[in-house]
Design a protein around this nucleic acid. Structure first.
Length: 334
DNA sequence: GTCCAATGGGGAC
DNA sequence: TCCCCCTTGGACA
C-alpha cells in the first residue's frame, strides 16, 4: 500500500476538508451498506493514520469518536476527492510534469499560492484529486459536484462542499472505541502518529527487532514491529544502512537499529511532504527533477535487479522473502 | 488491443 | 500457498 507516507497524506486531506462537517455516507457499490448507515448523518470528528491504517472518527468528540471508519487500501485501493478541496502544491507540480511526459492527468492551475495551500477559501473551481495506494497522485480541474460515482465505489463520504470516494480497499469497516484500541495495540510504532513520544517509539522498535531471530528484511515489513514500512522503503532503508536483509534482528546492533529507525523517520517525513518515496535524498537540480519524474531514477535498489549498484557496481539481486520481492546489493550490504 | 505485476494483508485451504 | 480486492501503468502485439 501505500506505504505509510500516502496514508498520512490522505489523513491530512480529510483533516483539511472533512473534519468538523456533517457527512452523508453511502455505499454506491452496495458492499458497505450496513456500515455506511451507522455513520450516515454524523459529524466527522477526527482523521488520523497509524502505519498504513486510516482511522476516521464519526460522532462523539475528536478525542473519543462514537464510531471509527477503518480503511486499509491494500495494494490498489484509492481515495478520490472532489469539490472544494485543498490540493497540495507538490501534487500540482507533479501534475504539471505529468502533462509534459504524456501521462494521464490534466494540470490544475500550477500557481496556487503556497501560503494558502491548506485553506479551503483559496480553492477556486471544483477539483478532483486522487490519492491512491501507490505514490503517484493526480489532480484535474472543474468536475461537476458531486460527480457521478465511477466504477466500484465501496463508500462515498459527502459533505455540502466536498466528496470522497473509496474503491478497491482491503479493509473497510466500522470499529467501536475498544476495537480501535486493539488495532493500535497490535501495530508497532509510527513516527508520524502522535500516539507516543519519538524516543519511546524508537525504543519500542529497537526492543522488538533486537530480540527476534527473524531476518531484518522481514522484521521491517512486520507491521507489529514498525508500522508503515512497505516493500520499497524496506529495500531502500537496508541499502542505505548497508545491512544484509538476511541478518537476524538479534545480530543487528542497537546502534544500527537506532540508525535504521532515524533514517525511516527522515524518509517518511520526506514522503509525507512530497507524496513520493524519494529514497535517494539530497539530490539537487536536474538530478532531483529526474528522480521526481522517473521512478527508475528514484531508488538505490528497488526494481533495479540485474543493474549495477549505484555505489559499488555489483549486480543488484532479487529474491523472494516471505512471498515478497526483496531487492538488495550483495556487494554493499553485509 | 491484451496481459501482467504491483508500494498489502486477511482468510480459506 | 493460494485467492481475493477488482485498479492501473507499463510491456508487448
Amino acid at each position: 500500500m501505500p506505504e505509510g507516507h500516502s496514508v498520512h497524506r490522505i489523513a491530512r486531506q480529510f483533516g483539511a476538508n472533512f473534519v468538523g462537517r456533517t457527512a452523508r455516507v453511502t455505499s454506491p457499490q452496495g458492499r458497505f451498506e450496513v456500515g455506511a448507515a451507522e455513520l450516515d448523518g454524523l459529524e466527522i470528528t477526527s482523521s488520523e493514520a497509524i502505519g498504513k491504517h486510516l482511522l476516521l472518527g464519526f460522532g462523539g468528540t475528536a478525542a473519543q469518536p462514537a464510531h471509527v471508519l477503518h480503511v486499509h487500501l491494500g495494494i490498489y485501493g484509492a481515495w478520490d476527492f472532489a469539490g472544494a478541496i485543498s490540493v497540495d502544491p507538490t501534487i500540482l507540480a507533479a501534475v504539471g510534469r505529468m502533462g509534459q511526459t504524456g501521462m494521464r492527468g490534466i494540470p490544475v492551475r500550477a500557481g496556487v499560492d503556497g501560503e494558502h495551500e491548506d485553506s479551503i477559501a483559496s480553492i477556486g473551481a471544483p477539483r478532483l484529486a486522487r490519492l491512491r495506494a501507490g505514490e503517484q497522485e493526480t489532480a484535474t480541474e472543474a468536475v461537476d459536484f458531486p460527480p457521478e460515482p465511477v466504477g466500484q465505489v465501496r463508500v462515498r463520504i459527502l459533505t455540502d462542499t466536498a466528496v470522497a470516494d473509496l474503491r478497491g480497499p482491503t479493509v473497510c469497516e466500522v470499529l467501536e472505541p475498544a476495537e480501535v484500541a486493539a488495532l493500535a495495540e497490535r501495530l508497532g510504532p509510527d513516527p508520524e502518529a502522535p500516539t507516543e513520544s519519538r524516543r519511546k517509539a524508537e525504543d519500542r522498535f529497537v526492543a522488538r527487532a533486537s530480540r527476534s531471530n527473524q531476518p531484518i528484511g522481514q522484521l521491517l515489513m512486520d507491521q507489529s514491529v514498525v508500522a508503515g514500512i512497505g516493500n520499497v522503503y524496506r529495500a531502500e532503508l537496508l541499502f542505505r544502512a548497508r545491512i544484509d536483509p538476511h541478518r537476524p534482528g538479534s545480530a543487528v546492533t542497537d546502534d544500527e537499529l537506532r540508525a535504521l529507525w532515524r533514517d525511516w523517520v527522515k524518509l517518511l517525513r520526506i514522503g509525507v511532504e512530497t507524496g513520493q518515496m524519494l529514497t535517494i535524498d539530497g539530490l539537487r537540480g536536474a538530478r532531483r527533477a529526474a528522480a521526481l519524474a522517473n521512478r527508475a531514477d528514484r531508488h538505490w535498489v528497488y526494481k533495479r535487479e540485474g543493474l549495477p549498484c549505484r555505489r559499488c557496481g555489483t549486480s543488484i539481486a532479487l529474491e523472494t522473502m516471505q512471498g515478497r520481492k526483496l531487492y538488495w546489493c550483495p556487494g554493499c550490504q553485509l
